[in-house]
Design a protein around this nucleic acid. Structure first.
Lengths: 297, 297
DNA sequence: CTGTTAGCGCTTTCAG
DNA sequence: CTGAAAGCGCTAACAG
């Protein structure tokens, strides 16, 4: 009636009374990365449709910050949480404590089996295997793996795929070919440079995350190594524009938007229907190996 | 005291009572774009420091959605708003109405002089001029301009720079060289293709936003035109990785992170200090013309 | 079916 | 300086 005169109910009063806020939190490690950007896009699209609001928190791969954020969510600020773990997180009590307070937590991409909830990932083992096999088929026989974190499934599973592919093709892996990246890009660049300057220089690099691919390209540039003539690089990355700009860029693309949508859809279903319970299962979406044939722009 | 037993006050009760939510909204056109990604990063960094929460809304360049979002913010959900206008927005009453309710609105990047508030932009005219001059210096004499929106300052000011640079170098601008991009990337691609297939084919393309640069590269690829041999392209873009992957990519980089930080800092100052009033002024940050010399990876 | 009322959990104020 | 009480604006429950 008089609501045409721009009336809008006070959401805090409403949230207070109804004990639900129609708001969810999205906690992710970073955003300067096309994967998480697309995931947020997917999440936001579902949130709009369902009338939910989306709070964003960036951990910058920092565990204490992650804990601090989750603490702030304990008392009804949000109805649920979508999360991708920081690479420095190894303890998950901050997650289980939230669950104890009946705030559902759904993990995507960077998940851990140690947490009892629905997890949405991509086929990390398979795509790690395929990426490695692709490098081998392109002629690489000395392939280094740029690792993100030992505690994240994406780090270990992708590496398992890499190791298996090497094994299946009777290729050995030198110890120094497995690089453990940190949050410091400068440091990562140095490590890759050292790797490429070493006596046993690999002719293929497999970057397990986008950030490490950048370090790989930078290192090649710094050492005047041509990609792909001297070193072939493959990486997990969702940089569509980068692929347009460099046909030599071979990537594994994850269905980031879909993952975001899927995670959000499940979360909202859990929030709306009491009958819907969150099980302890992992939903696996399929990644795509992108090899560009044409010469591009 | 007993707060060590994981006590966290209910934020809605607190917000209701104190009439402030310690939450801000960020309304932007899109996020699959490194500029806005970096801006969010900047905003979020300040928000973390000041203990604010950040709600994200994506308009997807859709005016009705923008209006709808702002309506939802009318009753105390947020203390303030950081915003970049959608390209389809031409009426600003939804903004002024928010201001009427004492919710400060600060605009960044996509601003309009018609709105009385602090606006943070980059030196759009200057950088448009410099980008065009750069193409001219690289040998282009027929330069097309890929436009985003007539109602946005970034569209018009950058174009003014382009026009002036052409004039200053005694180059004429054909009518068909100014392309008005839409939200439909497929459509944009078609328009650029038609432009490049036309009789009066330009040898330089100036993309006023990142999205149009992608269309430009795609069009060149589709028509087997080499960049930069056949057509040179310059664009506004913050894609660091893309620059690493293609040395021919010449860009104008905006200080996106700084803009986000600046906008957020001003907003929080306005929220905390009553004495601080929001004036009607435009703060202009400097963009950078990036020309890569080395041959890259 | 319409109108009144209690109370969500906090903060601020005012009384003791 | 400590403790009780009122009230923020809404919604759910209940009475008329």
């Amino acid at each position: 009636m008089a609501k045409e005169m721009n009336y809008e109910p006070n959401p805090h009063a409403s949230s207070l009374r109804r004990q639900k806020s129609k708001t969810i939190a999205v906690v992710i490690p970073e955003i300067a990365n096309n994967f998480f950007t697309l995931a947020i896009n997917g999440i936001e699209s579902v949130a709009q449709e369902k009338g939910y609001h989306v709070l964003i928190y960036l951990t910058h791969e920092d565990y204490p910050r992650e804990v601090s954020f989750l603490k702030h969510l304990h008392n009804g600020r949000v109805d649920g949480l979508l999360m991708s773990l920081s690479s420095t997180t190894t303890d998950y009590t901050h997650l289980t404590e939230l669950q104890t307070k009946d705030i559902p937590v759904i993990l995507f991409d960077r998940v851990s089996d140690a947490i009892n909830t629905i997890k949405i990932t991509t086929d990390d083992y398979d795509s790690g295997y395929q990426a490695t096999r692709h490098l081998i088929e392109m002629g690489c026989d000395k392939i280094a793996y740029l690792m993100i974190s030992k505690s994240l499934s994406i780090g270990t599973k992708r590496m398992e795929g890499y190791i298996q592919a090497m094994k299946d093709h009777d290729l050995s892996i030198e110890k120094e070919w497995i690089i453990y990246g940190s949050n410091d890009n400068e440091e990562n660049l140095q490590m890759v440079c050292n790797l490429l300057k070493g006596s046993n220089r690999p002719n293929g690099l497999f970057a397990s995350v986008e950030r490490l691919a950048i370090s790989a390209y930078q290192a090649c540039e710094q050492l005047s190594l041509r990609v792909p003539e001297h070193v072939k690089i493959i990486s997990f990355s969702n940089l569509e524009i980068a692929a347009w700009l460099n046909p030599s860029l071979t990537t594994i693309t994850q269905p980031a938007f879909d993952m975001g949508q899927k995670a959000a859809t499940i979360l909202f279903k859990a929030l709306e229907k009491k009958s819907f319970t969150i099980t302890d299962e992992t939903i696996i979406l399929k990644s795509t190996l992108n090899v560009r044939k044409s010469t591009g722009g």
